[in-house]
Design a protein around this nucleic acid. Sequence first.
DNA 1: GATATATATCTTAGTCACTAAGAGATTTAG
DNA 2: CTAAATCTCTTAGTGACTAAGATATATATC
Lengths: 175, 175
Amino acid sequence: MSRTKARAALLGELEEAMRRSSAQGVLYGQTVANVAGIANSDLECMDILHLEGRVTAGRLAEVTGLTTGAITGVVDRLEKAGLVRRERDETDRRKVFITVVPEAAMKIGQLYVPMQQAMEKVWSAYSDEELRLLLRFANDGYKGVLAATSALKSLLDTPPEKRPDLKLKKLRRQP
Amino acid sequence: MSRTKARAALLGELEEAMRRSSAQGVLYGQTVANVAGIANSDLECMDILHLEGRVTAGRLAEVTGLTTGAITGVVDRLEKAGLVRRERDETDRRKVFITVVPEAAMKIGQLYVPMQQAMEKVWSAYSDEELRLLLRFANDGYKGVLAATSALKSLLDTPPEKRPDLKLKKLRRQP
DNA sequence: GATATATATCTTAGTCACTAAGAGATTTAG
DNA sequence: CTAAATCTCTTAGTGACTAAGATATATATC
């Protein structure tokens, strides 16, 4: 097998392995939402809140890709469940900041314990140097996926007849 | 900073980076489904079909975690869109095999081109040896997530009062 | 300072995918 | 041959989503 062919095969395997594990990751998230008794998007918003801290409703809409109307529903449910609180911004009273209620959110956090334990077990088999490589890849990969998403979205904004390669008219949902 | 503390920090960073990139990966998938004009679950099933080939409706339900009734809807929509075909198993006529229609499915495949290009760009910065490490990790990670999922599910089956640590009664959805 | 435009969230009506329960069709066990 | 099991589909009802617009507040223009 030639050098480049070996690499191509490696890349193929890598792609499939990553697809598989990320699909399984999605399933884990669904199970968490299910156990917690909240909707998938609700959990996604909790995750964003955990990462970014105090964010506005509009920001949640932006990050999740949901409409602001849908976010209203998400926050309503999360607030009702005691997981978050609404706080009007005093300097700009149109804005509503969403903050997590730490004690309640911790209960959600516990549902990630099995995942954390599993990952710790995996990571224990890697040296610090190897982990640094994985971290580099995770960061590079994030940037890559971000770029890919915006490329795909710009494709969506391009009128179908002007798209470089794809002919998808038949597949587009009729409004 | 001590040796173990450095590693703990590394693990923390790694966890966050992976969470972030996987969340973005989910968003990419949603965008693909959106552009293709099919539902999220429909795309997920296309992916499973792509990975596993010819599978039964029941198998799709099993892998996706949807009910068989929901899968009927998924397959109806995909069939209507010309992406898959139903084929009754001749030896066991209760079973329905779902197969992808290659030409139509290829159009969906094209929506992954931006992602593939982005990932190729990322991967080009890594040596073969480094990629092998990433592959090893992807496989280990998959097994880990799989284990975590079943651990969480078994937690779900355990009656709340017998669960080791989590007190989630309040959070569970009322039936 | 008053008016117009922009921004941020919420409301409403309608749609669509999902679940739960069970029906129909076929296979396997006794 | 009958009963139970297996596999998919059907039906009724639920809930999260979108689109469009209402409401409230902020900023810009005259």
